[in-house]
Design a protein around this nucleic acid. Structure first.
Length: 259
DNA sequence: ATGTCAATACAATATTGA
């Protein structure tokens, strides 16, 4: 069972990349982030024409998450992260697919540090930790997949330049601690479980010509509950989609679980 | 290294968010 996560950065603008990914990689589950699209404007017909269906939580202009599966939509478990009824951002959707609980997460970016945006990021991560803890109590396979907007370490295998990112919300000690606190509940970072060393970037900035310089970092993660980690067969990053025509600034990351 | 890109409001360019 291949479960992939792809920050698509505008689903309507990226439909060629999305359809190509579905047809070439044939994921059993694809978690999408940054749809930048209202619910009614999602091009579900083209997705269905590619043999997939889905559930989604869109938003006009920015944010938006979805979970796609072949041969019919997955079973929806929840839309929106519990814990703050006033949160209007579409950043969380959760489904069940073949006995596996799968979440598509678009964690707040949090820049610039020191503003309400950074506070929102940390508060959102607190809520995510609380929910992740409740999911663990179910003692079932859980995959928390998405754009976590956290560079886990200063290791060159995680970030092209720790110095360049030192004042960025993605690399702050508070962001990293909040990420570790979720891991420390008992989740496994699937990419590093399978590749303890090696460059595994998932994002290259468009502003700074990051792709051409290989100035990337690792912010798309799939966290596995113990029951999912028991079944971890492989994990990786489909790097070449970042180099294609009109790409997203992210590239997909994935896990394969034993059936 | 202050650059690119998508979406929106608006109606050719500016703003927002990343």
């Amino acid at each position: 069972m291949k479960i992939a996560s792809y920050n698509i950065n505008g689903i309507r603008a990226r439909m060629p990349r999305l359809v190509e990914y579905l047809e070439e990689q044939k994921p059993d589950v694809l978690c999408l982030q940054e749809l930048k699209c209202a619910d009614d404007n999602l091009p579900i017909g083209e997705i269905q024409a590619a043999g997939y269906d889905g559930i989604w939580h869109g938003q006009k202009g920015f944010n938006g998450v979805a979970i796609l599966t072949p041969g019919g939509a997955p079973t929806l478990r929840c839309i929106g992260l519990p814990g703050d009824p006033d949160d209007t951002h579409s950043r969380y959707i959760e489904a069940e697919v073949n006995g596996v609980i799968v979440a598509s997460i678009y964690l707040p970016n949090g820049n610039p540090v020191g503003t309400e945006k950074f506070a929102y990021k940390l508060a959102w991560m607190d809520r995510l930790r609380a929910h992740a803890s409740e999911l663990l109590a179910e003692e079932r396979p859980v995959v928390l997949a998405g754009d976590w907007n956290v560079i886990p370490t200063d290791d060159p295998d995680d970030v092209f330049s720790a110095r360049a990112m030192a004042s960025d919300a993605l690399a702050q000690p508070e962001s990293r601690q909040a990420f570790r606190r979720i891991l420390n509940l008992g989740y496994t970072d699937a990419i590093r479980a399978r590749h303890s060393e090696g460059v595994m970037y998932t994002f290259w900035d468009m502003k700074t010509n990051g792709w051409e310089r290989d100035a990337g970092f690792r912010i798309d993660h799939l966290l596995l509950s113990p029951q999912a980690a028991d079944r971890l067969f492989d994990a990786g990053v489909d790097k070449d989609y970042r180099g294609r025509e009109r790409p997203s600034d992210h590239t997909p990351a994935w896990v394969i679980l034993d059936d």
